[in-house]
């Protein structure tokens, strides 16, 4: 199990736009550097990237929820 943490405080989004599907779903392969979500901070959108490879398990933080820096956003299984 590996956690993906938020690099910044802000609002976390699972999708690039409301019309698009979430970046990742359970069972998806995740490569190092893959974008798994967006953090909106001060009207700027910052991509959240996986720091290690793995298999996507689940989003931990809800879509469009407020998160703190270091909050766990999603988990991977090895």
């Amino acid at each position: 199990m590996a956690d993906i943490q938020s690099p910044l405080p802000g609002t976390f989004y699972h999708q690039a736009t409301p019309e698009e599907p979430p970046y990742k779903a359970k069972g998806d392969a995740v490569a190092e550097g893959d974008v798994i979500g967006l953090i909106e901070v001060m009207k700027t959108f910052i991509e959240v990237k996986a720091e290690a490879a793995g298999t996507f398990d689940a989003y931990v933080a809800d879509n469009a929820s407020a998160v703190t820096a270091g909050a766990v956003l999603a988990t991977l299984v090895d």
Partner: peptide
């Protein structure tokens, strides 16, 4: 709108 110890919220413009 600052004060010492104030946590700047991330939700609005900078």
């Amino acid at each position: 709108f600052l004060s010492d110890g104030y946590q700047i919220p991330p939700f609005y413009d900078s």
